[in-house]
Design a protein around this nucleic acid. Sequence first.
DNA 1: AAATTCATGTAAAGAGTTACATGATTTC
DNA 2: GAAATCATGTAACTCTTTACATGAATTT
Lengths: 190, 190
Amino acid sequence: MTDPAAAISNLGFAILGLLARRESTGYEVAQRMRRPIGYFWTARHSQIYPELNRLDAAGMVEHEVIDGAGPRPTKRYRITETGRAALAAWVVGELEPQPVRDLEVLRLWSIWTVDPEAADDLIGRLEDTHQSVLDRYLEELAEVAGQPGARDPANPLFATRITLEGGIRSRRTALEWCAWMRAELAAANR
Amino acid sequence: MTDPAAAISNLGFAILGLLARRESTGYEVAQRMRRPIGYFWTARHSQIYPELNRLDAAGMVEHEVIDGAGPRPTKRYRITETGRAALAAWVVGELEPQPVRDLEVLRLWSIWTVDPEAADDLIGRLEDTHQSVLDRYLEELAEVAGQPGARDPANPLFATRITLEGGIRSRRTALEWCAWMRAELAAANR
DNA sequence: AAATTCATGTAAAGAGTTACATGATTTC
DNA sequence: GAAATCATGTAACTCTTTACATGAATTT
């Protein structure tokens, strides 16, 4: 059943993006959502299964029942031509500026309420998490960048590579910013 | 009434952060939430008024009824000592790595599904929005950086200044990344 | 035999946006 | 006199997380 009137959610486009690369069961979609798409969009299986059913009803994906474990029939999903077209149209569609929601910056915004030693410690812990995320991204990029297709804009690996590059640049900048903040704290202390 | 058992939401800490700087009516909290705190955390008045009532019930803020426009009594809120302590404890508390949710990167992750001209156009529009946000942040920083207190870690302006600096660095990095992506697209075209 | 993974769902609650509702004061 | 701003709330809906539920196949 195709219902083109039904609007597709952001999560829907995340799932279509996964299925455009490779067909998968719902379970696999939930696994693949963690890495590397989970670096910029996350969803749990409890959100994914209902969304797959909606995409199916809208004709964006189709499924076949296959053999598998579990008390219910295992379904393998594939993107349809309609779904492929909807995804491509969304990718180049209107860009409304997205509100940023960053809990770390929200904390830093109230950092003046704590003493400078505690502030320095907080920023140090912030650095640690940025560093470990950066390390993970770098490993991931090393795996991807050498593969054939990673330099071809029509290949999914190209998109994986340039988004990882964005993550790496952003974490490096965050680390530099943290070092700068500690210096600002230290400068005031003297 | 003080209920220390009630957990405070992220929005609650955003509001406490505002009231720690200066007492305000609910209406003013909603206005102040837009700039500059709205650069990293947003909320509408429909979320703010109920949250203020919860903070009030938890003893984190207190209010007095003042003269003002509107069909209901106008309340001016002030953070309590309890609220101040809860805010400071939260600022330096445990840091769980936050999941990133970035719709722009989600698009770019599927950019391989569109032709290189459309991809280049998309990145160009991305650059425009980053540039205009950067310009706004720079203006804001110019207003803040020169004021007395902006270099004192115990002054709210210090926190405003370092968070703005973070926004500026992050947008500049995003712009460089966009330019790099366009070059990568162009390199493949030759 | 026990633990883990595969596999798909629903329920409840919290977080967030949009829309509805009201009415006084101030500015044009 | 009209429009904008001040001022506070509720209702409905969407999105997201956490918890509940089930059971087969595989690995230890």
